[in-house]
Amino acid sequence: MSKLRIALILSTTRETRFADKPAAWLMDVAAERDDLELEILDLRDFDLPFFEAPASDLWMPASDPKVIAWQEKLAEYDGYVFLTAEYNHSIPGELKNALDQAYMPFVRKPMAAFGYGSIGGARAVEHLRGIVVELQMVPVRSGVNLGASDFFKVHPLGANGPMSDVDGVLRPSATAMLDDLAWWATALKPAREATAAAS
């Protein structure tokens, strides 16, 4: 059986973002597995406009080439991990915009979140989970939260140490998250295919 394809969506585009550091760590953790392949999907690479379509692609096809490229790329994956910072108790605006630009590629696929910030991005992740339910994704229970003193061990505003300094704390959560994603992706993929064949 081929490996499941899971997108690791980098949810901020700021030049000074922290996301690349935990993303590289999670890619290394996922590379040790034989059931899934994690691939980085960076919002910087899509230059999405603000959502201004008459309706989402649930109701009509997109017309903007940049939006179509985003939707087509999302459709390639069996599930998603959203790596998100917390901005003012919620997700970054560019992530919300990217979610608004697609609907159909997300339907009945599992998602998980890796939040980071002073309290581990927990409030952003809770907001995100409500959004993805509306997009008919399946949020898995397990996720990763990098917060408090562990966050400042590896963030440039703190000690700026390597991610290996917090590996022992984060790895059990990362393993549980990827286990959940693999289980749900394996269960949902044939169900989606059966539904598509029937229609």
Score class of each variant (00 low, 15 high):
residue 3 K to F: 00
residue 3 K to N: 02
residue 7 A to Y: 07
residue 9 I to L: 02
residue 10 L to E: 07
residue 11 S to G: 13
residue 15 E to H: 01
residue 15 E to G: 01
residue 18 F to L: 11
residue 19 A to S: 13
residue 19 A to P: 02
residue 22 P to Q: 05
residue 23 A to C: 01
residue 24 A to H: 06
residue 24 A to I: 01
residue 27 M to C: 00
residue 27 M to Y: 02
residue 29 V to S: 03
residue 30 A to K: 00
residue 32 E to F: 09
residue 32 E to W: 08
residue 34 D to S: 09
residue 36 L to T: 08
residue 37 E to F: 04
residue 38 L to S: 12
residue 39 E to N: 05
residue 41 L to M: 09
residue 42 D to Q: 04
residue 43 L to G: 01
residue 43 L to Y: 05
residue 45 D to A: 12
residue 51 F to Q: 11
residue 54 P to K: 03
residue 54 P to G: 10
residue 55 A to S: 13
residue 57 D to H: 02
residue 58 L to S: 10
residue 62 A to L: 04
residue 62 A to Y: 02
residue 69 A to R: 12
residue 70 W to R: 10
residue 71 Q to N: 09
residue 73 K to I: 12
residue 75 A to M: 04
residue 75 A to F: 00
residue 78 D to E: 00
residue 80 Y to L: 14
residue 83 L to V: 00
residue 85 A to D: 09
residue 88 N to K: 02
residue 89 H to R: 08
residue 94 E to W: 00
residue 95 L to V: 09
residue 97 N to S: 08
residue 97 N to H: 07
residue 97 N to A: 13
residue 102 A to Q: 07
residue 103 Y to R: 09
residue 104 M to W: 07
residue 104 M to A: 05
residue 106 F to S: 03
residue 106 F to W: 13
residue 107 V to Q: 06
residue 109 K to F: 05
residue 109 K to D: 11
residue 113 A to I: 12
residue 116 Y to E: 05
residue 117 G to C: 14
residue 117 G to V: 10
residue 122 A to V: 13
residue 124 A to S: 12
residue 125 V to H: 15
residue 125 V to F: 06
residue 126 E to M: 07
residue 127 H to E: 14
residue 128 L to S: 15
residue 131 I to A: 11
residue 131 I to N: 11
residue 132 V to A: 09
residue 135 L to M: 10
residue 136 Q to N: 14
residue 136 Q to Y: 07
residue 138 V to Q: 14
residue 142 S to I: 03
residue 142 S to D: 11
residue 143 G to L: 15
residue 144 V to D: 03
residue 147 G to F: 08
residue 150 D to L: 09
residue 156 P to K: 14
residue 157 L to M: 15
residue 158 G to L: 03
residue 159 A to N: 06
residue 159 A to T: 13
residue 159 A to I: 15
residue 165 D to Q: 10
residue 169 V to L: 01
residue 170 L to C: 05
residue 171 R to N: 02
residue 172 P to S: 04
residue 173 S to A: 15
residue 175 T to H: 01
residue 178 L to Y: 06
residue 180 D to F: 15
residue 181 L to D: 12
residue 184 W to H: 10
residue 196 A to D: 00
residue 199 S to K: 00
